[in-house]
Nucleic acid binder design. Sequence first.
DNA 1: GCAGCAAGGTGTACGTCGTACACGTTTTGC
DNA 2: GCAAAACGTGTACGACGTACACCTTGCTGC
Lengths: 246, 246
Amino acid sequence: MSNQAGAPPRGRLNRDKVLRAAVGLADEAGIELLSMRRLAQHLGVVPMALYKHVANKDELLDGMVDLIIAETGPADSGGGWKAAVRQRILAARATLQRHPWARRVLETRTNKTPGVLAYMDSFIGIFLSHGFSEDLTHHVMHAIGSRMWGFTQELFEEPEGQDGGSGDGLDGDAQLALLAEMSTRYPNILRIATASAHDQGSVVGRGCDDQFEFEFALDLLLDGIEKLHAASWTSIPRVVLSGEAP
Amino acid sequence: MSNQAGAPPRGRLNRDKVLRAAVGLADEAGIELLSMRRLAQHLGVVPMALYKHVANKDELLDGMVDLIIAETGPADSGGGWKAAVRQRILAARATLQRHPWARRVLETRTNKTPGVLAYMDSFIGIFLSHGFSEDLTHHVMHAIGSRMWGFTQELFEEPEGQDGGSGDGLDGDAQLALLAEMSTRYPNILRIATASAHDQGSVVGRGCDDQFEFEFALDLLLDGIEKLHAASWTSIPRVVLSGEAP
DNA sequence: GCAGCAAGGTGTACGTCGTACACGTTTTGC
DNA sequence: GCAAAACGTGTACGACGTACACCTTGCTGC
C-alpha cells in the first residue's frame, strides 16, 4: 500500500525479478531512461532495496545481458558449420531486435559475463568441431567480431518517429531546402540514398531492408571464411618467419 | 588569476579552443571522465561559460568527432578502389587509435554531423568513381558498416592495467584456479586463447596482433566485394520479381 | 511456539552530473 | 565614446549512483 505508479509489489524481491523488471523497463523506455531509481519505483520499492540483489548498476546491466542471451536458445547444430553459424547469429539477431538497448550495452562495455563467455564458447565450438584449425578459428572470430550478436551498425538510423516517412517534422519547403543542401554537399550519399529507396515513396533513406543488408554482409563474410578454410589457410608462417634466412 | 589546476587562460575562449581542449581531456582522462565541469576547470573557466560556444554536451561530442575526422586527412585515391578504400580505412584507424574514446562516441550516437557525412560521402565516392553500381555500393556500405572507421570490436579487451601481463592483480594461485575454472566451463575459448598466445609468455589472450586481425578481416571483406563487383552482382532482381508471372 | 538472526527493505545524505536563468563584464562596430 | 552584442559568472534545480545506519520481515533451531 505504499507504492504508486508501479507494478504490484508481488511479494519479496529477488535477483531474477529485478533483472526481468530492468529488461522490461529498458525495452519500453529505452536504456538511457533506465535508472536505479526509476527501476525501484517500477518495482514499488525504494532505490536502495535493489542493492540487496545487484552489486551496482554495472552488474545489473551484466545480468540483463545474460538474461536475454539465454533467450537466444541453444545452438541447433544440424548441417554444416555455415548453417550452424548462420542460425546462431540470426537467432541472436532476432533476440537483440526485441531488446534494442542490448546493442549499446554490449558495445559499450567489456562484457565477460558467464552468458557472454558461454555464447562465445559455443560459437568457437562450431568452428572447431567442423575441422577449423585453432589458428583460423581465432582469426575468424576476430573477423566476425560484434556481428556475432547479429546487430547492424546503424550508420544513420532515424530515431523512429511516429510518422511514417522521413520528414523530421519539417514542412515541405524546409525538407526540400535540406535536400538541395544535401545534393550539393554530399552528392554521393544522395545518389545512394535515392537509388535505394526502391520500395516506397520515401525520398531519402529507409528504403532498404535491414534484414537483407545484414544477411548480405554476413554471407559475404561466411563465403570468404569458407574459401580460407577450403584452402587450409593459416597465419602461422607470419610468425615462424621471424628469424629466417634472407 | 582566478583559475587553478587548469591551463593558462590564454585570452578568450572560442568554439575551437573548447573542442580541442575537450579532445585533449578525453585523450588523457578517458571519455567517461570528460564532463562539462571538468572541461571548464581545465580551461580555467566556469562551467556555464562553455555553453556560449557549444549548445550542450551532445553537440560538444559531435564537434570533437568532426575535429578528429579532419585529422584523418583527405583521400589519397591513387591506384584502384581497393587500395583507396584500404588507405582511407587504415588512416582512419590510425587516427582513432590516437583517440580511443572516439569509438564509443561514434558507436553510441547517431552521428550525422558534417564531418561524418563528408567522410561517408567521400567513401561512397570511391566506389562510384570506380564503376560500382549504385545498388552494389549501397549494399557494400552496409557490409562495411562501422569498420569504415577502422576500429575493432574489442571482444574482450583488458582494461590495460599498469602491469604488463594478464594477471589482474591476482596472485599465482588465484590465477591458476581461474584458469582451471575456465578450462572446464569454456574449453573452446581457452583453446583459442592459448593457441594464439604465440609471441610471448602470456597464458591467456593478448597474444594476438590487433592490427593484423583488423587487416585480415578487412581484406576478407574487400576480396568478397571484389568478386561481387567482377560478377556485376546486383540485388535488383529481388525487387523486380515482386509481381512477375509464375 | 518462540527467541534469535540473517536477509530484505527504508531514510537520509553526499558528491556528481547537465544545464536553465539572471546578472556582470569585456569587446566590437559605428 | 557609446550602444549593443558577445562573452563570462553565480546560483540553483532536478536528476543520477550509492554509502551508511537503521527498521522489519520471515525462517531457523530449539
